[in-house]
Design a protein around this nucleic acid. Structure first.
Length: 145
RNA sequence: UGAAACGGCCGUCUUAUCGCUGUUUGAAUAAAACAGAGGAAAGUCCGGGCAACACAGAGCGCCAUGCUUCCUAACGGGAAGGCUCAUGCAUGCAUGAGACAGAAAGUGCCACAGAAACAAGACCGCCGCAUCCCUGAUGCGGUAAGGGUGAAAAAGUAGGGUAAGAGCCUACUCGUGCUGCAGCGAUGCCGCAUUGGGGUAAACCUCAUGGGUUGAAAGUCCAAAUAGGCUGUUUGGGUCGCAAGACUACGGGCUGCUCGUCCGGCUUCAGCAAUGAAGCAAGCAGUGGGUAGGGCGUUGGAGGCUUUCAGCGAUGAAAGUCCCAGAUAAAUGAUAAGAGCUGCGCAAGCAGAACAGAACCCGGCUUACAGGCCAUUUUUAUUU
RNA sequence: GCCGGUGUAGCUCAGGGGUAGAGUACUUCCUUGGUAAGGAAGGGGUCGAGAGUUCAAUUCUCUUCGCUGGCU
């Protein structure tokens, strides 16, 4: 059942971007100003129980940056919120090479909308769908412009 | 052996792969090694450290605490004890609870009911005297035993006493005050005196003690771009030039027109003018504040563990040993395998694993918590 | 992280120790040919929860739960 290492090996040659499944601090979206811009100008994709909000960045960091949010209204206790955030982060870490080459100047926010504790496999599938839709829209806008 | 109460302790573990944060080594963002949530990290209910600001001293006000002694850096916490209440046995013990100073310093309140709810009062009663229409009624006086109301009616019980009664008197009990004894003290015991005037202070209040205010989003240091502030300097249509000036564009005057020539340079004031002063704009240089961002504060501490000693105990002292999270839109995760535990099941196997996530740091309190272990007490049943 | 406020009828709010109220909504009746408006009557409350103080607690005190505001 060592599914993840197999995937890692298979993509090591084919994908030019991030053969290793890292997720550094620099890949997080930490700036308060940038977060405000993201929520004001970003485009929204809803894929229940996830909501993805993204915005093309024009400033310095030349790679995608991620923001994960779980509202306090859905989960009262901090440990449950932390768990959902960690699961989302883990599934993003394992799947981001399928959608991004590492050159996009992009800000992504992921919001968890449900109030049930999710399963890891379930979350991975939903995030896959959501990111796929996001990528399609991005490609269309790039071609259109 | 089962149950209950109370107290203390533990709060699944190991490995592999992929990651995250920090420290060390390293030129390095490569790589390696090591470390990486709790008993409550929670609530923010108290107390401290620390920081900034304020501050002669005293009083008033506000807030908190409130039996005693001790522990402690401090506490509203803890230990030991006293008192009161409740429960149990059955008469002084056990367990539990207690915001447990003051109600003759003053003010307020005590609904309904009741005659009367605080120096108030007599409804029905009881007794004496007087009058009359005399088995009774009325008036005056005495009384607080009995009745009824209420949460509460002014010590209780028994006897004496009296016209009837009453701490009016006596005994015992309760309360209060005083002497003596025991105790550091709260308090207890003995004796004497005393009629002894409700409750409420988690109503205002009085007394005693303590408290300066605000909290790491405190505070402090570095500081980009852009805009703006201050200072100095240069320029005042443009180009060239260090400058003087030259060329050129523009406006005005001289002239009927052209050529030519003279004058003019942002605004205001002074001056015939040259020019000067003030302002405005632009360029350059310097400078200070501040934003984004970053550093410190920030993890070695009233620290942990072990042993010995002192103390009834909380706790303290000494010695040895260890370094044990440090993030910042916030790391401590995911997946897989195995072991242990619990439930169901003969078994194979299947299912499950609480409450909950550091945010400057400590000491407590309170609240949440599956399951397990230990000790004490009570009790059920069985055996000897 | 720190500091406040609040919880009462279906809804919006009074009441701050002595039988819990107002407006609106609801039900029934009157009025009208019918409806609205108007009038009369009525029902509906664990005063967020649990302890304590008190003769008595929605009110006072403590604990707890929910909602909500402010400080970068």
């Amino acid at each position: 059942m060592s599914r993840l290492p197999l995937e890692a090996n298979s993509h090591k040659q084919s994908s030019p971007y991030m053969p290793r499944f890292t997720f550094h601090k620099s890949e997080r979206l930490c700036s308060k100003v940038q977060i405000e811009k993201l929520f004001q100008e970003g485009k929204v994709i809803k894929q229940y129980p996830l909501q993805v909000i993204y915005r093309i960045n024009h400033d310095t960091p030349a790679w995608p940056q991620l923001l994960i949010t779980v509202p306090k209204k859905r989960f009262k206790r901090a440990n449950k919120r932390n768990r959902v955030k960690r699961l989302i982060r883990e599934s993003y870490r394992l799947q981001k090479h399928l959608f991004f080459s590492g050159q996009e100047k992009l800000h992504i926010g992921i919001i968890y909308l449900s109030s049930d504790l999710p399963d890891f496999d379930f979350l991975q599938k939903k995030l896959n769908l959501a990111l796929q839709r996001c990528k399609n829209e991005l490609d269309q806008t790039v071609q259109g412009s």
